[in-house]
Design a protein around this nucleic acid. Sequence first.
DNA 1: GAGATTTACAGAACCGTTTCGACAAGTCCG
DNA 2: CGGACTTGTCGAAACGGTTCTGTAAATCTC
Lengths: 342, 342
Amino acid sequence: MAKKRRPTMKDVAAHAGVSLSTVSYVVNDSGPVASDRRARVLDAIRILNYTPNESARSLKRRSASTIGLIVPDLANQYFALVAEGVERAASERGVLVVLCVPQATGKSDDFYAQLLRSQRLDGVVYLSATGTLPSLILELTRSGAVVLVDEQMPGFELPAVVSDNRRGAREIAQHVIETGHRRIALIGGPRPLWSADQRLAGYREALAAAGQNPDEVPFFGGDYRQRSGYELAAKALEVDPAERPTALICANDLMAFGALEYCRANGLSVPGDLSIVGFDDVPTASLVTPRLTTVRQPAHDLGAAAAGLLFGLIDDEEDATPPMPFPTTLMERESVAPPAPR
Amino acid sequence: MAKKRRPTMKDVAAHAGVSLSTVSYVVNDSGPVASDRRARVLDAIRILNYTPNESARSLKRRSASTIGLIVPDLANQYFALVAEGVERAASERGVLVVLCVPQATGKSDDFYAQLLRSQRLDGVVYLSATGTLPSLILELTRSGAVVLVDEQMPGFELPAVVSDNRRGAREIAQHVIETGHRRIALIGGPRPLWSADQRLAGYREALAAAGQNPDEVPFFGGDYRQRSGYELAAKALEVDPAERPTALICANDLMAFGALEYCRANGLSVPGDLSIVGFDDVPTASLVTPRLTTVRQPAHDLGAAAAGLLFGLIDDEEDATPPMPFPTTLMERESVAPPAPR
DNA sequence: GAGATTTACAGAACCGTTTCGACAAGTCCG
DNA sequence: CGGACTTGTCGAAACGGTTCTGTAAATCTC
């Protein structure tokens, strides 16, 4: 089977008996063309099954109608959901999104930044897992647009769409305090990460408001992954029983799952012996036993908003300014109960 | 701040005092060039911070070094994992992956096929949720390459990488039978889907081997989503207690989760009152209570293999032939127990 | 109804690469 | 030592579009 060449504009023009520019005008609706000729062109397009060559277009337009999406890993449902949101918003504008998963591939962020740069992408949505901005991403901000999700770079005024991590954290900490807990341990996210920082700040606010000295509550720094939740739970709980916390506040759901695992493995009942809360409200959170009390982030909307903001930036719109932090909502489920009386 | 144009080959050539073609030769290592000149060019590239314009390249080369990935939805961890696998294999070859999530965006598969076609993508990895092949995907097979994951189109000999669904299904059904269950209900996937079909076939084989007439075991067709697991579990269980199944075999984990939810909501103990098994072994499967007995599919590897096969096809390699079905492995956990004595 | 304006179209330049053909200067061999 | 190859280099023609410029015809204006 001869692998037949795709029809080009030239073919269409020939078939319709008009010039190249005319075809271009009808394809892009960018110039005046008489209705009968327009019809002829449209016919030719249909008959030849013509599709414009986007490479040529991007070359000429110096823009690819494509954005990049850098996401640490897809196995984390929170990230997956954000990605879906980005994709949704992009597809509505006929924009393609190219996916980069640095953590899964072992490639550095910079590797991708390089790749993206050469593709002349219009912009990039960047979800970080490390809190450090690769230098090339930074460079991208000069030629293209970059928007961060649930992340902020103090020092660089990068546009970002975030949810109100601090408030969400404060509320859930308040909730566990109000349930009666006094011995609380904190399992935080990777420190340089803005979201981790904000959540910690929120927890501490609530603690302070309840008259506790935040500096005295045990804190363990994790990496937002399940494994570290498990290990840190071990650290937090393997102490003198009199000192043992009655509640564990985890900075995201994955780590809370890890903690849950630990408890299961060690015969601790949740929430009987220990209350546990998370953050994010991934779908799995309402599936585990006990169903996890956590803070819902509107992951989908966050993603869509990020893409929207990015498009605004790309089009140089006046009102392309980062939205207010998205509100979070406390999801009270079953993993919190009053501490057992001593 | 003047938005400065990216340097082009011309700039590099001028800076190095050589011709365009020479620069191209060193960039692609595609022609002879004296070592001193090569060095000069390399220097110029570094100094100017030059990156080739991929749009121009694709235009000239008629290929974009980019593949498409069509995945029904990312919230399903199985799909997310496959996607990661694809991404990993692609990034190793410096190939970009453009992500399409038809279900999340409400766009049809055809919409994306159209988009992909115009981008002159080198190929597409396609995960279906419907079992019907969009006509445009079919058309893509003529100009580019398409490989299916865990899916096969009877009639069209499309290359596919699959795991041994049938055997996996047979084994897990065997397992529940051997545990003592005789009253079993099946919650299947969307019928036209090959994987759903294979799994069903596997279940029936095991049933038949155990002396049961497969046609007499209750079957409920779902859509691989959690909600339908819930609803179908309801249907399967809300029958005369004497008839009520003691085990529920679900064609994927998500539906098993739905069934689990139903049991929880209705005070049924798993596996005390009812055994439940799934398929896929998504990360959440070992997180729910009871931990779900299921069949592991090597999602990551499936994705990577699919991408690998696609590259082989693209490069017209002789040995680019679909791999043997990947073996699955039975993950015995806690959601299966002998049926309660009557 | 002559001149000004608009409308519909064609022609051509250009976007940034790759690559073919031409050509000059070495290198090899009998 | 003269032809047959190599080797290194360059110019120029694509690739498939967009868009500016020019122009002939149609429409408007008074």
